[in-house]
């Protein structure tokens, strides 16, 4: 199996290390080795810092990409936002000569040069592509039969389609397949492809708008009796988990829907315990899904 450098970002290491733990443990089971990216910073967040100054965004992203280039490995990561930044910056720098020149001029001041030697792959691509659905199914020790999962693809894993290689963004299948490989069922719900509301500096700038979108999505998921939300993005994860606490305090609406990152779900199905997956340290307790699991 290939080696990857692990880009951590901000949310996962600094707020939801359970995702990091779950990802490291599950990838290890499949023989995927993760190297540290020493000195990496915020990607930087595409909707926030890309909105303030795109040149800064490109330069800081390039610095992160250089760390991986120096290690000679492709990057993998657990956040759609980080994916958007690093994948897109990598692509733009490889195709826009003027931008490359500008960025390298800046990087020269810290003795770095972007060469365009590596690729950026979301951890979902590793599971679906490198590892494969069959291997995943075989590794399941605790099939999640009867568990209804509301899959939330998020936005930047699939879009913009031109710069991604995952096919249709209207009715994608990758994440549903990955979830169903654990034995769980991916349920259809209204506006499944809708954004969680966190991105584009909206969470920081207009929390009410942001949370209203989250509220709408959660309501749609509850309406089809989902047992949990599963997403491939640490930021969506925060928005759904912490967001439920905020929605409760702002509007007194309670959903009590556990929020799992894919590797946390997979970890459960592979027989890992909820504790080591960090599930007990989230805003919404995982009881709803754990109860259903234990009753089987």
């Amino acid at each position: 199996m290939k080696q990857y450098v692990f880009f951590l970002g901000c949310i996962m290491p600094n707020r939801y290390p359970g995702i990091e733990s779950a990802t490291r443990r599950t990838l290890k089971e499949f023989g995927v080795e993760l190297l540290d990216m020493d000195g990496a910073s915020c990607c930087p967040a595409p909707g926030v810092f890309g909105s303030f100054d795109l040149k800064t965004w490109a330069v800081l992203a390039a610095r992160n990409l250089c760390i991986a280039e120096e290690l000679g490995r492709d990057i993998t990561l657990c956040c759609n936002g980080c994916y958007a930044t690093l994948q897109e910056a990598n692509h733009l720098l490889k195709t826009n000569k003027e931008l490359l020149e500008e960025v390298n001029k800046q990087l020269a001041s810290i003795d770095k040069e972007f060469k365009g030697k590596i690729n950026v792959r979301h951890v979902m691509e590793i599971f679906h592509g490198d590892i494969g659905l069959e291997s995943i199914s075989k590794s399941i020790k605790r099939p999640l039969k009867g568990i209804n999962i509301a899959v939330h693809d998020g936005c930047h894993f699939l879009k913009p389609r031109e710069v991604r290689e995952h096919g249709s963004s209207e009715r994608p299948k990758i994440l549903d397949e990955l979830v169903e490989a654990t034995g769980a069922k991916s349920v259809e719900y209204k506006d499944k492809m809708m954004c969680c509301g966190a991105g584009g500096a909206v969470r920081s700038g207009h929390l009410d708008t942001s949370l209203d979108m989250t509220r709408e999505k959660l309501a749609n998921m509850i309406a089809v009796n989902a047992d949990s939300v599963v997403s491939p993005c640490a930021f969506c994860h925060l928005q759904f988990d912490r967001g439920q606490a905020e929605i409760k305090s702002h509007w007194n609406i309670e959903f009590n829907l556990p929020v799992l990152f894919y590797t946390q779900l997979l970890g459960l199905a592979m027989g890992l315990d909820a504790e080591s997956l960090g599930l007990r340290n989230q805003s919404v307790p995982p009881d709803k899904i754990l109860k259903k699991l234990s009753s089987k």
């Binding site: 595409p46 909707g47 890309g50 909105s51 936005c155 930047h156 879009k159 913009p160 963004s169 492809m193 809708m194 954004c195 509301g197 966190a198 991105g199 584009g200 500096a201 909206v202 700038g205 207009h206 708008t209 942001s210 979108m213």
Partner: peptide, 9 residues
């Protein structure tokens, strides 16, 4: 202008 979440739809 700042209400957009950059969802790309």
């Amino acid at each position: 202008l700042w209400a957009c979440t950059t969802c790309y739809t």
